[in-house]
Design a protein around this nucleic acid. Sequence first.
DNA 1: GGCTTGTATTGACGTTCGTTGATGCAACCT
DNA 2: AGGTTGCATCAACGAACGTCAATACAAGCC
Lengths: 124, 124
Amino acid sequence: MSKQELEVIGQDAACCPGLSAAPLDEVQAADLAKVFKALGDPVRLRLMSMIASRGEAGEVCVCELTPAFDLSQPTISHHLKLLRQAGLIDCERRGTWVYYWVLPGVLERLAAFLTTPHPARASA
Amino acid sequence: MSKQELEVIGQDAACCPGLSAAPLDEVQAADLAKVFKALGDPVRLRLMSMIASRGEAGEVCVCELTPAFDLSQPTISHHLKLLRQAGLIDCERRGTWVYYWVLPGVLERLAAFLTTPHPARASA
DNA sequence: GGCTTGTATTGACGTTCGTTGATGCAACCT
DNA sequence: AGGTTGCATCAACGAACGTCAATACAAGCC
């Protein structure tokens, strides 16, 4: 039920130069785009928000997520899968229920990627 | 050649509670999702990166962007339009050429949205 | 065992997206 | 004026996406 995510937002190192640091090469862009694409849907953004608002080490049961939407249960399950494949969340089954949480540090690394300034070239 | 963008990432106020602050409502999620969706394509991410790496108040001529890709000129033009409609960049025509730049503060606000912590409820 | 509940997967459908060639428009240059 | 260059728009196509009903799987309970 784990290990299927991307390793894009680096976990260890600073994933990549930063958006403004230098032009991204095709590989970096393709990997990062998957993460942003995962966030680029209203349902998935709300799911992320509902999970993330539980705070550090917080969890949410799927049974709390599904009824918050006007969508079928398979659809919610599908969106959760995409968020997981993007490396944003993970889940664990406990008894009958499945709990989701935000992978620690992912949001911080994404934010850092967006704001890392370019290396204000000394020559200019 | 301007005024067609979203006003999602707030310009003035802090746009919205923050992803982890509280569950997003449908309207906030729909608006924010458009921004992330705009970044959710490898070509657009590279375009953003190429423009952003010019730094504050930096500009890039389209004539520099197009040849960096293995895509037709209309395709690049289309992606630039989407980034502009998402409120991430703007452009101006000067003579024969068109120059693009990143709207100031947008990336910072997006990053803040991702990392704003939830209001560590005092009761817990 | 069989029944029930919670979640994931499958297969299909309509819609949106990324791409292109053709065309249009704006500005420069003789 | 006519020709050329840079960029945007249009119309069309295939691919990817979001959604659902049906089904399968997992775990608890009788």
